[in-house]
Design a protein around this nucleic acid. Structure first.
Lengths: 217, 217
DNA sequence: CCCAACACTGCACTCAGTTCCAGATTAGGA
DNA sequence: TCCTAATCTGGAACTGAGTGCAGTGTTGGG
């Protein structure tokens, strides 16, 4: 876009941060998120309006929309970054490892994120359960993770293992394997939540992924 | 309606139909759906307002909301019934069948629904891809299917097969198995769509579910 | 034949999200 | 130092979804 003249000079020349403008932008975003999450926790998601968030953060409604495209994004924005780190973790698994094990180990990144703030994760989960649209968007974001993971898993599965008697010419296996693994993760989290968060989550996930592990591996 | 006078207390007394009121209600609902889907197909989902739908259907905006709680529901309402028939199909599988095979066979109900109107299914799919909120809600609805299927799958898996060395006391296996199977279905449909709908969908699903089939079965 | 239940409508309202404009700020080059 | 262009900001006006209500039919069924 127009960042050619402005942003490039400082950023590329010194190669340090992403430039002052970008840094302040991130800071404002972060504060906006903090303020919003606090209000959501106290008043509930639906009962909190964007006007309130903006007012508490000391800015206008218009400015809010310069930082987040929607109210939902304030809550779910971090999921994009999380998906990115998941893909990274998967990429760095040893080449010989089978797809299922690699996925399980990559999930450790998410579990770590989860373990760092269990109470926050719990609160977020309850917020999702209370708002259908929010819960739906959450699922959608997680589905976006598939696409990032496909190339890595496809490489581990090989091009076309056993075409079978009636080959369709369509290979949906990588996506299915990823989907199955993510379903395990989701099931583990839900059961863990439903049971009041006793027992370590990673053990639950281990148990589940051992049960569902495809026989092909 | 001549049958009104000679009614003999037909509706309530004999317990056959759901009563005239309910029947007309269903009819209006159906027509509203037809009208809306037609407009969506011609103008696009976002570009079609509820006012338009109501106008074409010959009623007021207020009345529209008496039949559908939201615009999205017009599109996704049938998914509830579909989940119900899926659960029924699963319940009627032979008792000895393993969980994975039972799920695969139960999916035949969905494939049949799909095969009955491939073009409509394709159009609906494209509509979902074009609208994030709609796609998200679609996922959410399908997640609602889990809960209906859990009891049936839990019964087939048995209470606690092999508790493992570090038992957590949390059993997320049924949900995970269901999630994995649904992920296969979703992956098959997506790949099938992406490939332009050549090759029979059921073969793609067979291939995928054979690959992902848990080794435990 | 009656009446309670239900159907339909219009209206006013809230809130999310978009678009446009005008002014303030500031980064970085001349 | 000053200039300029990009970005940030606030505000107003707008659309459309969804809610609540109050008034007015309409009819199913006893």
């Amino acid at each position: 876009m127009a960042e050619a003249s402005g942003g490039l000079g400082l950023g590329s020349g010194l190669g340090l941060g992403p430039g002052l403008r970008e840094r302040t932008r991130r800071a404002v975003r972060a504060e906006l998120m903090t303020v919003a999450m606090d209000l959501f926790a106290r008043k509930g998601y639906d009962a909190t309006t964007i006007d309130e968030i903006a007012a508490v953060a000391g800015m206008s409604r218009s400015s809010f929309f310069r930082y987040f495209a929607s109210k939902e994004d304030v809550v779910l924005d971090h999921l994009d970054a999380l998906g990115e780190s998941l893909a990274e973790a998967l990429a760095q698994r040893p080449a010989g490892e089978d797809a299922w094990t690699a996925l399980r180990r990559a999930f450790d990144v998410l579990l770590a994120y989860h373990a760092r703030d269990p109470q926050g994760a719990r609160g977020l989960r309850q917020m999702l359960d209370g708002n259908p649209a929010l819960r739906a968007r959450n699922l959608d974001k997680q589905c976006g993770w598939h696409d990032r993971l496909i190339p890595h898993i496809a490489a581990r599965l090989g091009p076309a293992p056993d075409p079978g008697p009636a080959d369709t010419g369509i290979n949906a296996r990588p996506e299915a394997v990823i989907g199955a693994a993510l379903a395990c993760l989701e099931a583990a989290k839900r059961a863990w939540m439903a049971a009041g968060c006793r027992a370590p989550l990673d053990k639950v996930l281990d148990d589940v992924m051992r049960t569902v592990r495809p026989g092909a591996f």
